Deep mutational scan, measured.
Amino acid sequence: GIPATNLSRVAGLEKQLAIELKVKQGAENMIQTYSNGSTKDRKLLLTAQQMLQDSKTKIDIIRMQLRRALQ
């Protein structure tokens, strides 16, 4: 079985993952909103794209940590 310490770690990672998935969803929504907007929305679009990139990276890292914890 999986050690108890790993189980609480997994629960924490799953919570983090859920949050990051919401951030990713929000960033994707912002990108959709701003991509057909005016030029003043360009900065917001770039910010949203950066957020999305960061979020995807975090999600990958969390998933990797989850896999390790579940081994």
Rank of each mutant, 00 (worst) to 15 (best):
S8I: 09
E28N: 02
A27M: 07
L70C: 09
K22A: 10
N36T: 10
G12S: 14
A27L: 14
K24P: 00
D60K: 15
A69P: 02
R63D: 03
K15S: 07
K40E: 11
K15V: 06
R68W: 10
S55Y: 01
I62C: 01
T5V: 09
I2H: 13
I61K: 11
Q50D: 04
Q32H: 10
L44V: 03
L7Y: 02
K22E: 08
I19G: 03
P3N: 12
K24H: 06
G1D: 10
L66I: 14
S35V: 12
S38D: 13
T33K: 15
A4Y: 01
L21K: 04
M30H: 02
N29E: 13
T47W: 15
N36K: 10
L13I: 02
D60N: 14
I59S: 01
K40P: 07
Y34N: 03
L21Y: 06
S38M: 08
D54M: 06
A48G: 02
T5W: 06
V10W: 02
P3H: 10
L7C: 15
I31D: 01
R9K: 11
K15M: 10
M51Y: 03
G12F: 15
T33W: 14
G12K: 15
I62R: 00
M30V: 05
L7T: 08
G1E: 09
L46M: 09
Q50C: 11
S55K: 01
Q49A: 04
D41I: 02
L21R: 02
K56R: 07
N6G: 09
R68H: 10
S55L: 03
R67W: 07
S38Y: 08
D54I: 07
I62N: 00
L52F: 04
K24C: 12
A11P: 04
R42S: 14
K56I: 15
Q49G: 02
A48H: 03
Q49W: 12
I2F: 11
R9Y: 15
Q53S: 09
A18Q: 13
K22I: 08
R63E: 06
V10N: 02
V10A: 04
Q53Y: 06
N36R: 04
Q71P: 05
S35F: 14
P3Q: 06
S35W: 09
T39D: 10
L7S: 07
R68C: 15
L44K: 11
K56E: 10
G1M: 08
K22Q: 07
K56S: 08
E20L: 13
E20N: 03
N29P: 00
G37W: 01
D41W: 09
L17I: 02
S35C: 15
T57M: 14
A18P: 00
V23L: 09
L17T: 00
I2P: 09
S8K: 08
I19T: 08
E14R: 14
P3M: 06
R42P: 14
D54N: 08
D41M: 02
A69I: 13
R63H: 04
D41L: 02
P3T: 06
Y34A: 09
R68T: 11
S35K: 09
K24R: 07
N6Q: 07
L7H: 14
T47F: 14
L44N: 05
R42T: 11
E20V: 07
I31E: 02
Q32L: 11
I31V: 08
K24Q: 06
E28M: 11
S35M: 14
K40H: 11
M51V: 07
M64I: 10
T47Q: 15
T57K: 09
K24Y: 14
V10F: 03
A18N: 05
G1R: 08
I2S: 10
E20C: 13
I31M: 04
L44D: 04
Q71V: 08
Q16V: 04
Y34V: 06
D54R: 11
K22Y: 04
K24T: 03
I19N: 08
L44Q: 08
S55I: 06
N6Y: 02
S8F: 03
S8Y: 04
A11T: 08
D60E: 13
I31L: 05
N36Q: 12
A18E: 11
L46I: 14
L44P: 04
I62M: 02
L52T: 01
R63C: 14
L46R: 10
R9M: 09
G26N: 15
L70K: 13
Q16D: 04
L66E: 01
A69K: 02
R42G: 09
N36D: 09
Y34M: 10
R42W: 14
I61V: 06
S55E: 01
V23G: 02
D60S: 14
T57N: 10
L44A: 06
L45W: 04
L13T: 00
L45V: 04
N29L: 15
Q53G: 03
K43Y: 06
K22V: 07
N6R: 11
S38E: 13
A4V: 13
L13Y: 03
R67N: 06
Q16Y: 03
L17Y: 02
K24E: 02
K40G: 10
D60C: 15
D60M: 12
I19P: 00
T47I: 14
L7E: 15
T5Q: 09
T5R: 07
R67I: 12
T5N: 13
D54F: 04
T33H: 13
Q25A: 11
S35E: 12
L46F: 06
K24A: 08
N36E: 14
M51P: 00
I62K: 00
R67S: 09
K15A: 11
R9D: 11
N36M: 05
E14K: 14
L7F: 02
R9H: 11
T47P: 02
K15G: 03
I19K: 09
I31W: 02
L46G: 03
T5D: 12
A48W: 11
T39Y: 08
T33P: 01
D60I: 14
A69H: 04
E28V: 07
K22T: 06
L52G: 01
S8W: 02
L17W: 02
T47Y: 14
G12T: 14
R9C: 15
D41P: 01
T33R: 15
I61W: 13
Q50N: 06
E20D: 01
L45M: 05
K43I: 12
Q25I: 07
T47S: 12
T33E: 15
L17D: 00
L46A: 11
L7N: 07
T47D: 11
L7R: 13
G26A: 14
V23W: 03
Q49T: 06
K40Y: 12
E28F: 04
L52W: 08
K56A: 06
L21N: 03
R42Q: 14
T39C: 14
T57E: 14
L66G: 00
K43N: 09
T47K: 14
R9L: 14
N6K: 07
G1A: 10
R9V: 12
K40C: 15
L7I: 09
G26F: 15
K58F: 02
T39I: 08
Q16C: 12
Q49D: 01
K43T: 11
T33Y: 14
L7V: 13
Q25F: 06
A4D: 11
I2W: 13
L70F: 05
K22D: 05
L17Q: 00
A69W: 04
Q25D: 06
N6S: 07
T57G: 05
V10T: 04
N6V: 05
K15R: 13
D54S: 08
L17S: 00
E14Q: 14
Y34E: 02
I2A: 12
V23C: 09
A48R: 00
V23P: 00
L70M: 08
L66Q: 01
G1C: 15
K58C: 06
G26T: 15
P3L: 07
G26W: 13
K58A: 04
A18I: 07
Q53H: 09
G26M: 15
R68E: 14
S38C: 12
